[in-house]
């Protein structure tokens, strides 16, 4: 359902963000992509969503090459992919409900949504997603009034109302404190297990990664250097991803 074939991407200035990346993800998998910042993790996710167009290679989402699609066709493919960011990217001045309804923009004609009009089913969907994320009493609050963890739950709700088959999360817990980070990661696991939504999460922290992911993909300098089950990550593999040995026995202890 998701397949990358020899994808390359360089940015002006000569940085090669993706170097001959090939990756296949089966429906319902929970994949965690790890690596240092600058390893190309974000570019990988943005390429899958079509926000970044690869220089060469193919990105097949449900058999369609998202990089070669334009306009309406591309928007149709995108609405089936939920996107979660480190800094939430909510519209702070708008209500929580409006932020979540934004997830339905791809399903509704522009002229209606511009007037703020959404079909009742969509509103119901948003309401359910919010109460599921434990924010049922916050729907008319301004997004600015929420805590970091609550904001990230709103953005998960926004992704859920897209009724996606795939959720991409780019460092979703990097701005949160450790207990909240675990809470958010647990939500991803729950969504993955209960609804069978495929999930790709970028994390720089390998401990968190091996705790939640089934499969770990390690990236270094734009290339995939490890792809395998979380349980078999050891000190040697750690070194190949991060270019240094794990400090003390903390790493081994985490496994």
């Amino acid at each position: 359902m998701l397949e990358l074939r020899q994808v390359n991407k360089s940015f002006p200035g000569g940085v090669q963000a993706l170097a001959d990346v090939s990756l296949t993800v089966k429906p319902g998998e929970f994949v965690v992509i790890v690596g240092e910042s600058g390893a190309g993790k974000s570019t990988l996710l943005r390429t899958i969503n079509g926000l970044v167009r690869p220089d060469s290679g193919e990105v097949l989402v449900n058999g369609h090459d998202i990089g070669s699609l334009q306009g309406k066709e591309q928007r149709k493919l995108r609405r089936g992919i939920g996107l979660i960011f480190q800094d939430f990217n909510l519209v702070e001045r708008s209500t929580v409900l409006t932020n979540v309804l934004a997830g339905r923009l791809g399903y509704n004609p522009a002229w209606k949504t511009v007037l703020g009009s959404f079909p009742p089913e969509d509103v119901e969907l948003a309401r359910q997603a919010l109460s599921r994320m434990g924010l049922g009493d916050k729907i008319f609050n301004r997004a600015a009034d929420l805590s970091g963890g609550q904001k990230q739950r709103v953005s998960i709700a926004r992704a859920l109302v897209q009724q996606p088959h795939l959720i991409l999360a780019d460092e979703p817990v990097a701005s949160l404190d450790p207990p909240t980070a675990h809470d958010i990661m647990a939500w991803f696991r729950k969504i993955n297990q209960e609804e069978g939504i495929t999930i790709l999460v970028n994390l720089h922290d390998i401990h968190l990664a091996s705790q939640y992911g089934d499969r770990i993909v390690g990236m270094r300098q734009g290339a995939i250097v490890y792809d395998g089950p979380a349980v078999s990550v050891n000190g040697e593999i750690f070194a190949s991803i991060y270019g240094r040995a794990p400090v003390g026995d903390k790493f081994n202890g985490a496994l």
Partner: peptide
């Protein structure tokens, strides 16, 4: 990007 990502029109 968050809105582009949900397939929103211009």
């Amino acid at each position: 990007d968050a809105l582009k990502g949900v397939g929103a029109s211009w």
